[in-house]
Amino acid sequence: MLVKAYAKINLSLDVIGKREDGYHLLRMIMQTIDLYDVLRIYKAQNGIHVSCNKNYVPCDSRNLAYKAAELFINRYDIKNGVNIRIVKNIPTSAGLAGGSADAAAVLKAMKYIYAPGIHDSELLELALKIGADVPYCIIGGTALCEGIGELVTPLAPFKDHILILVKPSFGVSTKEVYRSLDIHKIIKHPDTKLLIDAVSRNRLALLSKNMKNVLENVTLKDHFILREIKEQLIDFGALGAMMSGSGPSIFAFFDDMLKAQNCYDKMKTKYRETFITRTI
């Protein structure tokens, strides 16, 4: 079967504490966008076979799609295997949950192929074992995510808003960003209540003006070019610009397609991985 694995952006990202095991406690608004990997997933006689159109993407147990298949097969004692072909369009190490989206797509496909009777709650339980973003990627849409990411509360849809997404030529390690974050030095936190209200009333300008990602305190300090990208997007008419996740991708909302297209044309000459897309 063919499955689309959609990327996400953060409309907000707040770190509100830290557990004894080292995991950070989060409160963030996540949003699916119309940028996706395409996965072809079908039965095999045995084993897990992953291939990808990008040679820099690992196809062994380091790949989250592989981990998802392995976890599902072991959990439900599946006797057969699976073939997974990934056509990668979402930039990697970008703060867009590309690997998590692939893992979520595999879990949903494996359920359809091998165990249609299992409850969605079991799928979410498996998803969390793979990564904190995977439960959200199972659900998708617009959602408030809390805890370490596993508590997902759907919000009013915030769809059909135009955005430009720019991913520079380098990647960022999420683990390193969180390791470098000093939560006691976070001065300004997102106004999550205000942002949820902006989402519920479909107020793009209000949301764009108040978006906040506290991980920018780390990533933008280490990579000054990201500040320049944000400024350039604003100069081209964006209502607001922000880093997604731990970065380094920067996105910006536009209320006018002509402005967005002009921005895309200009940014594409500087950054190969520039996209014009929408929230869905």
Rank of each mutant, 00 (worst) to 15 (best):
residue 207 L to C: 12
residue 207 L to T: 11
residue 207 L to F: 13
residue 208 S to F: 04
residue 208 S to D: 05
residue 208 S to H: 05
residue 209 K to T: 09
residue 209 K to S: 10
residue 210 N to Q: 07
residue 210 N to I: 06
residue 210 N to C: 05
residue 210 N to S: 10
residue 210 N to G: 08
residue 210 N to R: 01
residue 211 M to P: 04
residue 211 M to Y: 02
residue 211 M to L: 03
residue 212 K to A: 11
residue 212 K to H: 11
residue 212 K to S: 11
residue 212 K to L: 15
residue 212 K to R: 15
residue 212 K to I: 09
residue 212 K to M: 14
residue 213 N to T: 07
residue 213 N to K: 03
residue 214 V to F: 01
residue 214 V to G: 05
residue 215 L to D: 06
residue 215 L to G: 09
residue 215 L to M: 10
residue 216 E to G: 08
residue 216 E to N: 10
residue 217 N to T: 12
residue 217 N to L: 10
residue 217 N to F: 10
residue 217 N to Q: 11
residue 217 N to M: 13
residue 218 V to Y: 02
residue 218 V to I: 06
residue 218 V to R: 01
residue 219 T to G: 05
residue 219 T to S: 11
residue 219 T to H: 07
residue 219 T to E: 11
residue 220 L to W: 08
residue 220 L to C: 14
residue 220 L to K: 14
residue 220 L to Q: 14
residue 220 L to H: 12
residue 221 K to V: 11
residue 221 K to L: 15
residue 222 D to N: 15
residue 222 D to K: 15
residue 222 D to M: 11
residue 222 D to R: 15
residue 222 D to Y: 12
residue 222 D to S: 15
residue 223 H to V: 14
residue 223 H to I: 12
residue 223 H to M: 13
residue 223 H to C: 10
residue 224 F to S: 14
residue 224 F to R: 13
residue 225 I to L: 08
residue 225 I to Q: 08
residue 226 L to Y: 05
residue 226 L to F: 09
residue 226 L to C: 09
residue 226 L to D: 06
residue 226 L to K: 07
residue 226 L to P: 07
residue 226 L to T: 09
residue 226 L to E: 09
residue 227 R to S: 10
residue 227 R to H: 15
residue 228 E to Y: 12
residue 229 I to G: 02
residue 229 I to P: 04
residue 230 K to F: 09
residue 230 K to V: 11
residue 230 K to M: 08
residue 230 K to H: 07
residue 231 E to F: 14
residue 232 Q to E: 08
residue 233 L to F: 02
residue 233 L to Y: 01
residue 234 I to D: 00
residue 234 I to W: 00
residue 234 I to V: 06
residue 234 I to T: 03
residue 235 D to I: 03
residue 235 D to R: 10
residue 235 D to G: 04
residue 236 F to S: 04
residue 236 F to P: 01
residue 236 F to R: 03
residue 236 F to Q: 05
residue 237 G to L: 06
residue 237 G to H: 03
residue 238 A to G: 01
residue 238 A to P: 00
residue 239 L to D: 04
residue 239 L to K: 05
residue 239 L to C: 06
residue 239 L to Y: 06
residue 240 G to I: 08
residue 240 G to P: 03
residue 241 A to M: 08
residue 241 A to Y: 04
residue 241 A to S: 14
residue 242 M to K: 00
residue 242 M to H: 08
residue 242 M to G: 00
residue 242 M to W: 00
